[in-house]
Amino acid sequence: MAAMINAKDANMPVLTLSKVTKTFGSGHTEVDALKGVDFSVSRGEFVSVIGPSGSGKSTFLTIAGGLQSPTSGVVSLDGADLGALSDAKRTRLRFEKIGFVLQRSNLVPYLKVGEQFALVDKVAKRGVRSSNIDELLTSLDIAALKDKYPRDLSGGERQRVAIGRALFNDPSLILADEPTASLDSDHAYAVVKLLAKLTREQGKATVMVTHDERMAQWSDRIYRMEDGSLSVK
């Protein structure tokens, strides 16, 4: 418990990866996707990881998000060692502590914008916090979209809603996987700027993976992923 409280303090890392490796396959088909990655991000920090496709950055993100286990090394989130948790506990941790913003829209196609948020409350087995939803939608300037389906939104609007939903559960960590891949430059910039701004305002730790170096300009730190090795740029 003590570790979790400390993690809330500024400059305490929210997410750390130490000596993380990931190997796929075996024998002569063996591929080292990650080769001893050390990484950490603290509250209020917006960190970018850039690299070409196939460099291992998605593997890095899935391991950071507890979606798969590293071959070796330790991943800890808010002081909890992900490797030591059961699948069920890891699922719970993802739900409570991580907000995801994905490349393909991660909105549920058959839920209206407001219901995307209500779903979070339903999964959390609590009453729908309507006023919180309205507040968040207003602060992101998307209140007018509340009763629209994702298919009726532009790409930029969709990512704003996705960012809003990632924040709705008040997570410690935000993982963004190519959040601008489906957007034109102007909208892409706007989305990254929003993400950076909210990260600082709300004291989140944000990791954005992108292949587009221009998107990294608002980051506090930029890492480069190349052939499974991570280095500060």
């Binding site: 998000g65 979606l67 069920a88 699922t91 719970r92 941790l93 993802r94 739900f95 409570e96 991580i98 995801f100 994905l102 393909r104 991660n106 549920v108 196609p109 339903k122 999964v123």
Partner: peptide, 16 residues
Amino acid sequence: TAIFGVMKAEGVRTGF
């Protein structure tokens, strides 16, 4: 399945 994958990644339980 695609959206189910996303939901699971976000921590929605399989049971739900």
